[in-house]
């Protein structure tokens, strides 16, 4: 079922844009935005356009940093890491579509720190849902929602919208 239609999703993105402007102020222009493959990249490019950032968008593939390697092996690789700018002493806006367990963000943070030492990392997520397994919270979220363990939010692109799958228990 539809969690958020295109209009609602666009509105959430607008809201996030505002919040980011607010919290970053004049640091915004010098900050680096990085989306996590694949959903995070889609959300990040929407935000990137809205914010009108001049620095190109970075992309992060966390395949080599996942913590479930010894449980399910190497994931089929999705996208490649592409960080066009030096992260040293910069403000990084890390973007993902859905914040759930927090493990993806943990992996992304590790990878980012292998590239350099940012001054600050801000986490922006389209949806922050219940079920966190790590002490990681979004600084900016389009929506927050309580969901059961069998439920999942899926991002659809072109046009952007969100689906809710599974039944609450």
């Amino acid at each position: 079922m539809i969690f958020a239609d295109t209009a609602r999703t666009e509105a959430m993105l607008d809201d996030m844009t505002e919040k980011l402007r607010e919290s970053l102020g004049d640091q915004l222009e010098s900050s680096a935005m990085i989306g996590i493959h694949t959903g995070g990249v889609d959300v990040a490019s929407a935000l990137h356009k809205r914010l009108g950032l001049s620095a190109p968008l970075g992309m992060l593939s966390i395949s080599f940093y996942r913590d479930d390697f010894s449980r399910i092996g190497l994931h089929p690789t999705v996208g490649a890491t592409d960080l066009p700018q030096n992260l040293e002493d910069r403000t990084v806006i890390l973007v993902d579509d859905v914040l759930y367990s927090g493990r993806t963000v943990r992996a992304a943070l590790n990878e980012i720190f292998d590239y350099g030492r940012p001054a600050r990392v801000l986490l922006a997520c389209l949806v922050e849902r219940s079920g966190h397994e790590l002490p990681i919270r979004a600084d900016v979220a389009g929506a927050s929602v309580d969901l059961g363990p069998n439920q999942q939010i899926k991002l659809q692109t072109d046009p952007l919208m969100l689906h809710l799958e599974g039944e609450p228990t």
Binding site: S63, Y65, T77, A80, T81, E111, D114, Y115
Partner: peptide, 20 residues
């Protein structure tokens, strides 16, 4: 081949070592 391509990409980015 595709995984190798990702490792090439990482190393082109200056990332020589991953914690896998």
């Amino acid at each position: 081949l595709e995984t190798a391509e990702s490792f090439m990409g990482a190393s082109d980015q200056g990332l020589k070592k991953v914690p896998l």
